[in-house]
């Protein structure tokens, strides 16, 4: 079910402002791809353009091509709502729906589809998704409590459960651990490892060790100069990137000389 993504000559704009320029890459199916780079270089923007969340911001648009499973994501015949259903997303800060219980949070995406869920179907999906998110044992006795009552790390795993409950093809994660403590972070990283066998995962991270730990491929983004648009400096298998990068600036960034 996991799909690969081909990006070619992608330019991303906010209104007239060119945020990211000329990106080419291939994101492999059933693998973890990490985007790293200094703040403001367009990693998150790039990620959000992969499921058309970018265009939620007024005036934002995209030029170039993103092909998923042979279909162009920005074709006129493509419904962004369908795209987002198939390409799930986890955000920087955990964002469960505050008025819903844990149970309802997991099912929120499934309930959007017009067909009625029976109680047993719902229970199955909730258990399966929470187990996949390594949260089941912690919350199985309080499924009807509000999702906001969980700890930050649990909330983030709840959001992951919510995202995979609709069985997406691709999972995008926008710095999923930046608001979490180290223990929760390692729980999420373990989870990413497990999810890799079923999903294509793209993760944006500020933390280079994290990129090294979880990802198979890494893309390094940087600004050409202050005020210039961000661009993809290097895209390589993570091992190569962290031992023998092609570009000098990549090495400078990874070894901590800037950024």
């Amino acid at each position: 079910m996991a799909k690969s993504i081909d990006v070619s000559d992608l330019n991303i704009y906010y209104g007239d402002f060119l945020a990211v320029e000329g990106v080419n890459m291939t994101i492999k199916a059933r693998s973890v791809t990490a985007f790293i780079g200094p703040s403001g270089c367009g990693k998150s923007t790039m990620l959000r353009s992969l499921n058309r969340m970018h265009e939620v911001i007024p005036g934002a648009r995209v030029e170039g091509k993103i092909m998923v499973d042979g279909q162009s994501l920005y074709d006129a015949s493509i419904d962004p709502v369908a795209v987002r259903r198939q390409i799930g997303m986890v955000f920087q800060r955990p964002n469960p729906f505050p008025t819903m219980s844990i149970y309802d949070n997991v099912l929120a995406g499934n309930r959007l589809n017009a067909k009625k869920l029976s109680k047993s179907e719902g229970d199955t999906i909730v258990e399966r998704s929470l187990q996949a998110a390594n949260l089941w044992t912690e919350v199985k006795d309080r499924l009807n409590k509000p999702g906001m009552g969980l700890s930050g790390g649990q909330q983030q795993r709840l959001c992951i459960a919510r995202a995979i409950a609709v069985e997406p093809q691709v999972l995008l994660m926008d710095e999923p651990c930046s608001a979490l403590d180290p223990i929760s972070t390692s729980a999420i990283e373990d989870l990413i490892h497990e999810l890799k066998s079923d999903y294509t995962i793209v993760i944006v991270t500020h933390n280079m060790q994290q990129a090294a730990r979880v990802s198979d491929d890494t893309g390094f983004f940087n600004l050409k100069a202050t005020g210039e648009p961000g661009h993809l400096v290097e895209f390589n298998p993570t091992k190569k990137m962290f031992t023998n990068p092609d570009q000098e600036s990549t090495e400078a960034y990874i070894s901590g000389r800037f950024g």
């Binding site: 939620v56 709502v81 987002r84 995406g109 995202a163």
Partner: peptide, 19 residues
């Protein structure tokens, strides 16, 4: 954040508002 969570689940604009 909540609005984006709904949209990222594949909600239409009206569903996002309801949710």
């Amino acid at each position: 954040l909540n609005e984006e969570a709904a949209l990222a689940l594949g909600a239409t604009r009206w569903e996002m508002i309801r949710l």
